[in-house]
Each structure stands twice: as structure tokens, then as C-alpha cells.
């Protein structure tokens, strides 16, 4: 298992390097000026601009710039925001926990809903309950997250007044009275993500269980007289998990798309809304860093999926 783990870790590194090159190439190829508003400001003379360019290292050849940028990124130096003058890493560290917290809680809830519902739906195939669950799931994953978010706000905040519809970032975790408010304001954004993710997961799980049901080993287990919960929970589930993990891994980039949009709808102060705000303000260093942070997150989550794969399926561990 340890060698498998190490191998996976090592193969993730070239992916990260390649992605960082893609992101850097996009910036380097962009015809615009990385200095943004600074370049368009008429109060700055050409000479000063040239000096700024040199001080930022923009006069050096591309490969040199790439190596310097990636080395600096590795040591946690992501440059400074053009608008707030704060280090980019500081801005990102402030906001990353919020993004991961909301995403993590939502994914946990989605998993705990999708597994029982998906398995139930597959076992009772063609029953009216299966049809209902499948239809709702199908609609759920065709419903764009931004529209769900707006509908939730309309229904639960405007009409019913149950939850606040703008996320307040001034509340602190250490204060007991604020804790309730934090939970309350997190419910809607988490709800939106849960709805979408549950729909996606449920479809994967249902399809995977349906694949396994007619297999010979299931009939054998039943013929041996094993109790039904054991056949479903141990035999079928373990085999059905493999395709589910594969599909989930392929779907990881969508996960972050959903979280970015949801943060923007509810003004959750995570890295997604920071990215959008920085784009509006033309803050290139922050935009670059966050795009790369998302790439790192996708690679890490893919790695987790790979490791899970090894845990579930011993053949994967021993094959390579």
C-alpha cells in the first residue's frame, strides 16, 4: 500500500508542473499588459513604467520567468495584490478555509444522502419511488447552481425569511452567540451544493449498483443464504464503489465550478468570490494565484480518489 501511495504521489507531480505551465503560458501569451491599470495610467511616464517592468522581472525571457514564478510559488510567495497591497498568500489563506469548509460539509451530506437513496432506487428498479428519485435527481443535475441559489434566496430568505441571504464575514467562530448565525447563514449555500452533488452522486451509484445486481457472485451470495443487508452492504457495495470512485474523480473539476458559483451568489467570502472580485478589479497576481490554487485542489482531490481506489480494490494496489 505504501509503494502504491508513493507512486501515486510521484505521478501527481508532473501533472501539477504541466498545469502550472499551462496557466503560466496563458498569462505569457495574453496580449494585454500584466501591469493592468498601471500601464494605462497616463501619469506614469514610459521610463518609470520600464523601471517597474524591470523590477518585476518582466524583461527576462519566458523560461526564466516561469522557473522564478514557480519557485516563488512553492515557497509560498505568490506576490502582492495590486489593489490591497497585501501578500496574495495571506488573502488566500484567509479565505481557503471557508471554501473548503462549505464544500466539505456539503459533500459529506451529499454522500450520506446519495448512497442510501441510490442503492434503494437501484434495488427497487421501475417502482414508482425509483422513478420519483431518478426524475428528481435528473432535474437536480440539469438545474444550474446559480439558478438554484437564486430560487433558494427567493423562497427561504425573501418569502419565508428563515435565513439571511447575504453571508456576513464579520462573525467570529470563537463567539458562542455568533456560532448560531454562522450555521444559519451557511445553510443555504450548503443546500445548493448538496442538491447538485447529491443528484450527480445518486445517478452514479444507482447505475453502478444496477451493473452489479445481475452478476453471478450476487446470486451465489444469495443462494448461500446470506442475509439481504449483507449481500447489498458488503458484496454489491464494495464492487459498485469502484466505478463510482472513477466517475467522482472525473467530476472533481465540476465540484469546484459549483462552489465558485455558489460563493458568488451568496457572497460567501471564499476563494471563488475572491477570484471574481479580483477579475473585476484587474488584480492579476491574485487571479493567477487562485487559478493555480484551484488546479492544486483538483490534483489533490484526484490523488485522494486514486488512493481510495487502491483501498477499495486490492488488484489496483498489486498491479503496479
Amino acid at each position: 500500500m505504501l509503494t502504491y501511495l508513493l507512486k501515486r504521489l510521484i505521478t501527481a507531480i508532473p501533472t501539477l508542473i504541466a498545469i502550472s505551465m499551462v496557466i503560466f503560458a496563458i498569462l505569457a501569451l495574453a496580449p494585454g499588459n500584466p501591469l493592468g491599470d498601471l500601464a494605462a495610467n497616463p501619469a506614469i511616464t514610459a521610463e518609470v513604467r520600464e523601471n517597474i517592468r524591470r523590477s518585476l522581472g518582466l524583461d527576462q525571457p519566458l523560461p526564466v520567468r516561469y522557473v522564478k514564478w514557480s519557485l516563488a510559488f512553492l515557497t509560498g510567495n505568490m506576490g502582492y495584490s495590486l489593489t490591497s497591497r497585501a501578500p496574495v498568500s495571506e488573502l488566500i489563506w484567509q479565505r481557503l478555509p471557508v471554501t473548503l469548509g462549505i464544500l466539505g460539509v456539503a459533500y459529506g451530506i451529499s454522500l450520506s444522502l446519495a448512497f442510501p437513496l441510490g442503492i434503494f432506487s437501484a434495488l427497487r428498479r421501475h417502482s414508482w419511488l425509483d422513478r420519483l428519485i431518478s426524475t428528481v435527481a435528473f432535474a437536480g443535475f440539469s438545474l444550474p447552481t446559480f439558478f438554484t441559489g437564486l430560487l433558494f434566496i427567493l423562497l427561504f430568505s425573501v418569502r419565508l425569511g428563515w435565513f439571511p441571504f447575504i453571508y456576513s464575514s464579520t462573525l467570529s467562530w470563537s463567539d458562542w452567540s455568533d456560532l448560531g448565525a454562522i450555521v444559519r447563514q451557511s445553510i443555504l449555500p450548503i443546500g445548493v451544493l448538496v442538491m447538485f452533488q447529491t443528484a450527480v452522486l445518486l445517478r452514479f451509484i444507482r447505475a453502478a449498483v444496477l451493473e452489479e445486481l445481475p452478476q453471478g457472485y450476487v446470486q451465489t451470495a444469495r443462494a448461500k443464504g446470506l442475509p439481504h443487508p449483507r449481500v447489498v452492504g458488503v458484496h454489491i457495495l464494495r464492487n459498485a464503489l469502484m466505478p463510482v470512485v472513477t466517475l467522482v474523480a472525473l467530476d472533481i473539476p465540476t465540484l469546484f465550478t459549483g462552489s465558485l458559483v455558489t460563493e458568488q451568489v451568496f457572497r460567501v467570502p471564499g476563494i471563488g468570490s475572491l477570484l471574481i472580485d479580483s477579475i473585476y478589479r484587474g488584480d492579476t497576481p491574485v487571479v493567477m494565484a487562485i487559478a493555480f490554487i484551484y488546479a492544486i485542489l483538483v490534483v489533490i482531490f484526484n490523488l485522494v480518489a486514486d488512493i481510495l481506489y487502491g483501498v477499495i480494490d486490492p488488484r489496483v494496489r498489486y498491479a503496479d
Partner: peptide, 21 residues
């Protein structure tokens, strides 16, 4: 490699950098 790119952030980055020109 393309499958493990963060789609939306990357699209946003491209539009941000190439949009004006």
C-alpha cells in the same frame, strides 16, 4: 491533463486576460 484542469477558473482566467484585446 485537460481532464484535471479546473475548468471554470481557467475559463475565467482566459477571458480576463484575452477579453479586451
Amino acid at each position: 491533463l485537460f481532464l484535471s484542469l479546473p475548468q471554470l477558473p481557467l475559463v475565467l482566467l482566459v477571458i480576463y486576460l484575452f477579453g479586451e484585446p
